[in-house]
Design a protein around this nucleic acid. Structure first.
Lengths: 358, 358
DNA sequence: GCGGCAGGTCGAAGCGCTTCGACGACCGTC
DNA sequence: GACGGTCGTCGAAGCGCTTCGACCTGCCGC
């Protein structure tokens, strides 16, 4: 828009057809300029037929000269590919915000490397929204984030019959393609680390109870991983959901130590509890890591800026996003893909864990 | 995608043209089914010409029966409108994440109420990315978030000549449409509140120094608002940037009280400092709000879950998002819009402010 | 010398939609 | 009773692109 208030010249009322901007270069402008047929330009761009070196260069030069960019709508119409994927978020906001954002960014970036753009969709319109997106051929595939055990979008997805990938696992992932961190393994890795340091009583301070009740997959899977590993290694373990806020954290910790005064290992899977836990333990007379070792399952960012810096299993948002996009692309192209992709957790050892006391 | 691994029947190699799915209902299917011309269906949908009640109903019935959804690409091609807006984020991650997310959600939701979808774009491809989006006619307009004083996207935007709205103000907003909270006013409102309670020495604990150096608009504007109001009301004031982390916050506070032992009003514009400030003040022998009153300029979420609950000026993400979309739509339709839209700050009084001591 | 076969290029037929101009039918006028 | 207007509908012409089939070379082998 040219600067200044004179901006909106004489225009027809509201919904007038936008003027045919003269600056819109089309493929036939390029063809004319290069002295070739439209189809030749198209083949230069797509590489689907052999074009002589000399012609190709002439066409490419014209494209650059004229500043040509193919019209996405026309392309989608003719090729039956939109080169766009939908990123579907539940509107349940407040959840996991920074993580979601990281995913989204990774998805956008990765999609661009394969010539795709990302349409941001919230599922608050209900099924109709997804249906519309799918049926309007706006997108070639769907990426669902923040999937729950009994996610209402899942049956719809099956019915839609469009290529799709879920980030997270629903209760019944049959026939779906899902990617996520292997939370079961992640729980186990934490226990193994602590057990290896000699800790015999370990507690999990988990997500708020609502998260477990809602049947969120990652919470359950982590818990089970911890319980299984603990059983296997013969260490005692207890799981406690934990609400947000310093007060709630303190209450949980106090109760834990009443029950097990000799508890020395703590696994925290709750971003917003990390700070409070580390702040509260000293006030209960427990130093970290001398008396109590703490390991987090949380974004690296939180672990890094905690004090002491937290030993943790990070959520590899970047990697999950990349995997999800690349799986989706393969489905879009009709290639077979594995149903489940579980990313191996990696434990980063920092300053919050040490050998068990005594 | 039908369940199971037998999923991908006989298919041509990789980039085969997607099969013409028989389930894709087009406008001519609808026309045939309703016994009218294609154009009639189109007019029923767009309402751009009068259609008799009876015909309209017949068409609508057919649409519902067949589950018709217009093909977005075809529509965009013919009408020269994509019904999509671009939401452009800088990739500089880690910034303001929850706020950005709130904006994004508000934008998506609002856009849907006016029949638009949202394309998520990061500006990490550089100018080429925005240029491509604009030239490919994928979107009708652009929404830029997280705008800085000297934002590299701004000159590009002017050159592109597409309808656009910025969330935030660059140094030179000439010829651009910008929306934001009136941070100048917000700073003033905080000072007025504290001054009204009798506080005579007030400090601003601001964003990290890097934010000021980068020339981020909101930080400067808030500071100026505070300084102006302080001068006007005759209260003493000092501004201190503040890094993240409890340690940094503690250091700042200690220095502040060394300089002004009788400082009793604190304005905090730094989400991640809110918790630490409230936690640290008591350890310095200052109760909140009896000895020191604290007011935040931060998302409501942080203010609510602080203890004591924080008197604050929230960032009205929802409202900003709505305004931005509605301004953009007006520009898309060629209507004139104001250059600058400043949203009035609203102070929410909670438990962290009280009359000055003595 | 001719058939065959790549390698290059072109023209034209759509993709599914919107919109323009026409046209028939029906109204009220002078 | 002929004239102009609305109202409702239709047909056709694109929108800018991809892709199919055809059509030219040359060049190879026999």
């Amino acid at each position: 828009m040219p600067a200044g208030p004179g901006d909106h010249g004489p225009r027809l009322p509201t919904a007038a057809r936008p003027a045919k901007s003269p600056d819109l270069v089309t493929i036939s402008d390029v063809a004319r300029h290069a002295g070739v047929a439209v189809s030749t330009v198209s083949y230069v761009l797509s590489g689907k037929r052999a074009i002589s070196e000399v012609t190709r260069n002439r066409v490419l030069a014209s494209i650059r000269m004229l500043g040509y960019h193919p019209n996405a709508g026309a392309r989608a119409l003719a090729s039956r590919r939109a080169n766009v994927v939908a990123l579907v978020l539940p509107l349940r906001s407040g959840m996991q915000v920074p993580v979601v954002m990281q995913f989204a960014m990774a998805v956008v970036t990765t999609a661009r490397t394969v010539e795709h753009d990302v349409l941001l969709v919230t599922s608050d319109e209900g099924p109709a929204g997804l249906r519309r997106i799918a049926a309007s051929a706006m997108v070639d595939g769907l990426l669902l984030m923040d999937v729950e055990m009994h996610d209402s979008r899942v049956p719809l997805l099956r019915e839609l019959g469009r290529p799709s990938v879920l980030i997270g696992f629903p209760a019944d992932p049959t026939g779906l393609t899902c990617v996520d961190l292997d939370f079961h393994r992640a729980g186990a890795v934490c226990v193994e680390h602590l057990a290896g340091l000699g800790h015999r009583r370990i507690a999990l301070l988990g997500a708020p109870a609502a998260v477990y009740d809602r049947g969120t997959g990652f919470a359950h899977r982590t818990r089970n991983g911890i319980l299984d590993a603990a059983a296997r290694l013969g260490v005692d373990t207890v799981v406690r959901p934990c609400e947000e806020g310093t007060a709630a954290v303190r209450r949980e910790l106090v109760e834990l130590f009443e029950r097990w005064p000799d508890m020395s290992g703590l696994i925290v899977q709750n971003e917003s509890a990390v700070g409070p836990v580390l702040a509260t333990l000293p006030t209960l007379g427990r130093r970290v890591p001398e008396d109590v070792s703490v390991v987090g399952i949380c974004p690296d960012q939180f672990a890094e800026q905690a004090s002491p810096r937290l030993t943790s299993v990070p959520l590899p948002a970047e990697e999950v996003g990349q995997q999800a996009v690349s799986l989706l692309m393969r489905k879009v192209h009709g290639e077979p893909v594995p149903d489940a992709t579980l990313l191996e957790p990696r434990l980063t050892i920092r300053d919050s864990t040490a050998a068990a006391p005594r």
